[in-house]
Each structure stands twice: as C-alpha cells, then as structure tokens.
Design a protein around this nucleic acid. Structure first.
Lengths: 275, 275
DNA sequence: TGCTAAATCTCGAAC
DNA sequence: GTTCGAGGTTTAGCA
C-alpha cells in the first residue's frame, strides 16, 4: 500500500491537524475505512475507486452486481456511485445522508441512510484501488444565463418579443390550474396568457398552456393563449390551432440582447444617480 | 510530485501496456495533462482534483469562478465537475464529448466539445492536488424494481388492483394526444383509461389523464378516466371530480406482492414444463 | 412540509 | 435524428 499527502510527506497520524488530505493507493479495507471515517469527520471530499456491489432500498429498490466504480462521498452527506461510462450515477443519495463505515468479512461496507423519504444505499467493496480524502474549499460563484426566468424578464422588458403592442400585466400568476408565465393584454385590449419555453416546445407544453387557458375561458370567451418558444415539435402548431391557441417563435438571440440592453440601462441609471 | 501505480511500482513509461492506472499527487499542469491524455487514449476513468474556473456555452451559458472541485472524465466522453457539496454536478457534458487537453500560461486547460447540440465546457485549472487515471471494468448488471413499468405489469397481472372486475385490453396505447398507460373495460363493459403513477400524483398527472380522455369522449360519451396512484397531491381529487375523472389509491406493497407472485407462477410453470 | 414547474435535465424507446 | 414520457429524477421557490 502506498500513501501520499499533497504538499507534504505521508502522514501516518491521521489526526494530525490541518492535514490537507490524503490519497491511498491499494489500501486494505481497514485502511480505507479509517481514511473515509476521518475524511467524513473533517468534512473532506472523499473518493473511493473500488470493485463493489451496491444495493438500494427506498423510493424504489435496486441491485447492482459486482463491478469497478468510483464512489464519491461529500461532506454534506451526498453520495454518488459512478460506473466507468455514463453521465448519471448508477446509485446515489441526495444531501443529508448519514454514513456508516465498517469492515466486515474483509470488505469495506459503506451505508448511506436518509430519512424522509426513508432510503438506504449499501456499498460492499473489495479490491479498493484508491481512496482520496481531500480538503476542498470552493468560494466560487456560479451564474447562468438564458434560463426560462431570464426569458420571462426579457419579455417583460420588451413585450414586442411576443407581439407588437403586447402589454404584460403580471407574471408567475397562480390560478387553480397552475402558474402562468406571463399574462397581459394585446393591442386590442384582449387578455392573453403566454407560456414561455426556452427550447423546442413539445406537445406537453401546448397542453400546459391549454390547461391554464381553458378554465379561464369560461368567464372570458375572448382569452388568447400563446405558446412562445424558439421552436415547436412536429404537430404542436396543429395541436395549438385545434385548441384555439396560438404560437409565437421567439428569437432567443434577440431576447438575450434585449435583456443585456435593459440591464445596461438600469446600470447606467444607477451609476448616474450615484454620481 | 508523487506517483503511484496500484498493483505494481510506479511506471514512468506511460505507454507501457496494461498499466492498471496511475495516481499523481500535486502534479504539475504538464504532468496532469500528460496523464489525462494517456488516460483518455487508454479508455480510463480519470479524476482530477483541482482549483479551477469553468465556462459553459451551449444550450445555456454559465460561468463558475475559481474554487476547488473534482473533475471526472470518462471514456465515453462524459464530463462531470463536482463541487465539495451538492448531489448534482455544477457543470457537465453528456457522453460523446471530444476532449482537448493542453497547458497554457501554467494552467491545465481541458475543453469538452459536443455537437448536436453544439456545446462546450472549458476548465482552466491551477493548483492540481491529484490526478487519477484508473482502469475500470464494470460487468455488473443493474436491476430496479417498482418502476412505473412494473406497476403496469402488476395491474395487467391483477387488474383488481385498479377495480374489481376491470379487464385490461391494451397497454401503452398511442393516441394522437399521447400514450395511455392502460385501457380496458370495467365490469359493466364501460371503457376506462387508466393513468398510473408510482408516486404521489400531482395536478399535472390529472391533466395528463384528461388530455387522453377528453378527445376520446367525443366519440365515446361514457368513457371513464381513472388516475391510479399511491397518493394524491392536495386538490387533485377535486380537480379530477370537476373534470369527470376518478381516482384509485394503489397499494404499492400489494402491487409488488402481486408481481412477485405472478412471476413466481410463471417460473414454476417454466420449471414444470422442462421437468 | 407540501406542492409546482424548470432543467445545459438524462435516458431509453419508438418512429 | 426527432419526439415522447419516466425518473429513486433534483432543485429552487413559495405557501
């Protein structure tokens, strides 16, 4: 078995303060268990490469027979088990799991327990090829653009993205049938419900709009329903037409530009007020 | 920098056949790049613990400022970037990405490119604390029980789970409005469309059922629509009633038992035929 | 805690 | 390739 500590020589005493993390290659199950336990205690990011079986019991139940995987155990109680291919973990546990680590019959056994819903993942590992227990600090900020929420903002900033003369009244309005993205009046004063999609709109999107519009039409015969998206799956335009609904093709690049412009103006406004 | 090879001594010649994988601690960006490139060439499972920034451009676009993360690069072109907490990767690339690995300005730069949709993830890493490039074989079989598909099987095996006297006619029947889980006749010969949910049924599930049933009612006035689920969100039962639909509370444990029994019988049947 | 709807959803299956 | 629906979906937001 090999043992390494980044930035310094191998540390035998796992309890030595401020150890920046450890990596063991080909550890015994006991050594792996000790390092994982210490890592959990210290709030480290732990990774175990091993041959293992995995059992899950909870919302569903699953069995995974023996194979080599990478197991990730995070300090917030997240667990991920990754096979050598595929984006998605084959088994997992969302944050909040409580872990039990033990050695039994020469195997490393890691159990992740969660309540609400009650569920459990049991990993039985032999042939552990690596255990890493790493101190990780991540102060980084994550920002994303052109979510549906930003598309909604863009429409509120420049309603002509939907239609010339469209005037939004409210957004995210709740009705018994659900939340409507944008509600407003067209240039003729007719009410319109707009459902926004940031990607190609499917049949389901059309039905989503219909379920908002239909009940409201009982009291408002002239209510328009508009599905606004950069594109439409085959048959969706026809489906909309049959339901008395409409579609608008949204120019995403233009929406992005509108949003950028509006934010720029607000920033300039803010700066001029302060200067 | 330390260097290790599980099962054998450190291998300097990265091209040596059948190297079972390598782990580097505190490598230079160049060493990390070399090992990652070799790992990709050899179809290994690669993991990099590093301080990095991440940019994404594609279906959306995102920026992640500097922090310490674990980057996973799989042989099928999957990429995952995990922060120290949270179940979901902060950035990723589904299978099929083509990777470019280089060193520039003292940094390790890993780019994952995908076509259809066109998207790109760029990782710029400094302070690399670990790179692991691991041979992994995973012949394991994964099986899961009590998916919606199995619930459907259970209902087909024992239709009384839905209603006494219910006789299924077809399942997964496609209509212009979508796929209906189960269609059959009740004890009085009335047609019924059954929508199954393996978890608490939401408003959306009720509307999903309605969109199958409503068009069919034009030609079949007496058509019943039944939402069958282990539970129902607040207001869903009322919504169903208002739409002329019905609900049935499914006993999941009983469904599981029915399925187990039916499969057992088929197995016995199979065995008796062979003996 | 329950519920709604988005997501760079992913994944598999069918057409 | 497109479309559709399930998922142990997860996650954020809100009552």
């Amino acid at each position: 078995m090999n043992m390494m500590a980044p930035e310094e020589e191998p540390v035998k005493d796992g309890l030595k303060p401020q150890a920046p993390g450890l990596v063991l290659s080909d550890p015994s199950p006991q050594e792996a268990a000790d390092l994982l336990r210490e890592g959990l205690r210290r709030g480290r990011f732990n990774a175990i490469a091993c041959g293992c079986t995995v059992d899950y019991e909870g919302r569903s139940s699953s069995k995974l027979s023996w194979g080599e995987r990478l197991v990730l155990v995070k300090r917030d109680g997240s667990l991920l088990i990754h096979r050598p291919t595929g984006l998605e973990p084959v088994n997992w546990q969302p944050p909040g799991a409580i872990f039990d680590v033990k050695v039994k019959g020469g195997r490393l056994i890691v159990t992740g327990n969660r309540i609400s819903p009650r569920e459990r993942v049991v990993i039985e590992a032999d042939r552990i090829s690596m255990v890493a227990s790493l101190e990780m600090g991540d102060p980084g900020e994550f920002s994303m653009t052109m979510t549906e929420e930003e598309l909604r903002e863009a429409v509120l900033e420049n309603p002509s993205l939907v239609e010339e003369g469209f005037k939004p009244i409210s957004s995210e309005l709740e009705e018994p049938t659900g939340f409507m993205d944008v509600v407003g009046r067209d240039r003729h004063g007719r009410m319109a419900v707009v459902e926004l999609k940031r990607a190609v709109a499917s049949r389901e999107a059309a039905h989503q709009l219909l379920r908002y519009v239909e009940p409201l039409r009982r009291s408002n015969k002239g209510l328009r329903g508009i599905l606004a998206a950069p594109g439409f799956a085959r048959g969706v335009k026809r489906l909309l037409h049959e339901s008395g609904l409409e579609y608008v093709t949204i120019n995403l690049a233009k929406a992005r530009e509108e949003l950028r412009k509006a934010r720029g103006e607000r920033l300039l406004d803010y700066v001029s007020k302060r200067s």
